[in-house]
Design a binder for these strands. Structure first.
Lengths: 251, 251
DNA sequence: GGTAGAAGTTGACGCAACGTCAAAGTCAAG
DNA sequence: CTTGACTTTGACGTTGCGTCAACTTCTACC
């Protein structure tokens, strides 16, 4: 059982040009090439092609895909778990983009200014560029949270005051040795979440809050807002956020 | 107040090359170009650049960004709405992928047989939904055995159970050294053919059954359903199918 | 005023992953 | 034998810049 290039392309939902490209770069060679030069593909090719398309959809580039497929998957379960984690991360990223676009939409519809003049004041994320990229990838660096854009000066100051208060309370609780799931700590987190809700104009989802906690830990810009550097307060905050998310939020 | 290209780039967290590129494509012209050829940017440029970077982070391409920025607010809303719809669609697709990978994981952990297209569902088919649906009626099984789509979960499980039984019986007969044309083996094949008939809603033709046998051998996904890999069971099944086809079926 | 070094300029090529002609050969049907 | 669908191999186009290269200009310091 073998198929022509068009048949296999239709079957897999791609184009013949793509298949020729994959042949050219040695990613997927046809099972047989006729004397007329025609490419013929078999079942094995189809399976490999679909794995290629799967991995491509996961965002991997063809080079990486070739390495994965040819290295022989050591453990299917492991690989699938990896896919899953990647997919969930991807969904979270898209969720954040959706939230961001919604915020932008609301503001443009209300006729509010999209961008204040001193947008770059304060948060100079370029200083930590390398670290952020190393831990989160170029994308995270470029798309990082910029919800605070578009606020008035007064609003900004209020937010900053509230943020400082919350950060101070977290630091105090952590210094006092309180556990992250204690009621008083969770009360701080509740204020924190309300603060976030006001900032982003909507209640954060569970995965968003958890992801944000991880970002706090990963990103020194955020770490600077919570406790002294290296005293473990950021991790403490992350844990408290995770607890809160699992107790009170859904997706 | 005006800045050099590097200063603006650092401030906005991008590169001078990017700014030159934006100048070249007419997306962001510097406020002034010195007699020395140097580009100088002012406050207005900065605001526009910031809007550009924001929209870029939202995933829009530079062409779209130029149209939005140069057209004014109504188009902005329209574009953002469009982009929002796109993002939501993207998230749905990823959700389906996640469900698909989870299913795959569950089944591999239980050692159940994988239904190939189910594994890949959400990857290509949904995107080309119309095309796939259009050609779904015409030749379902020649296109790769996806008869089981549209069945209820219970029905699917029944089919899988039946398939496992048949596979087990084949493997046992082969292990016992029975010939493919023996009566007891042919009895298994008869069940097999009935199973196929139910699945495809029609009695298989002779050439179809023979071709399917060859496909079993060629395709590791099917081989996995019959005996241990490499123990010759698949070939045994193919032979039994061929015998049955030649004895009982026509085209 | 000389000089080093940082920063600026304009090309021009490179990259990923194909899309999109173009010119020409092949196949299946009527 | 013609027609039309399908295939082949080039080869250039696309997006959003990165990355030299070769050269000029600005700034700082001796």
């Amino acid at each position: 059982m073998e198929w022509s290039i068009q048949q296999i392309a239709r079957e897999a939902g791609t184009t013949s040009r793509t298949l020729r490209h994959y042949g050219q770069i040695g990613l997927l060679a046809p099972a047989r090439v006729g004397r007329n030069g025609y490419r013929y593909y078999d079942q094995t090719n189809l399976v490999r092609l679909q794995r290629i398309l799967l991995l491509r959809d996961l965002g991997l580039n063809l080079d990486a895909i070739a390495r994965i497929l040819d290295a022989g998957t050591p453990d299917t379960r492991e690989a699938l778990h990896g896919h899953l984690r990647w997919l969930e991360q991807e969904r979270d990223r898209i969720d954040r983009q959706i939230a961001s676009v919604r915020t932008t939409l609301r503001k443009t519809e209300r006729g509010e200014a999209l961008m204040p003049a001193e947008v770059f004041d304060g948060f100079d994320h370029t200083r930590y560029k390398d670290e952020v990229i190393a831990r989160w990838g170029e994308d995270a660096y470029r798309s990082g949270d910029r919800w605070w854009q578009g606020l008035s000066e007064t609003e900004k100051q209020q937010f900053q005051q509230a943020q400082r208060d919350i950060g101070r309370d977290y630091a105090a609780a952590h210094a006092a040795g309180r556990p992250a799931d204690a009621a008083d700590v969770q009360a701080v987190t509740a204020r924190h979440v309300r603060w976030l809700g006001t900032a982003t104009q909507q209640t954060p989802s569970r995965t968003y809050l958890v992801g944000l906690g991880d970002m706090y830990v990963a990103d020194p810009r955020f770490a600077a807002n919570y406790g002294e550097p290296g005293d473990g307060t950021v991790e403490f905050v992350r844990d408290a956020m995770r607890v809160y998310a699992e107790r009170h939020l859904t997706d």
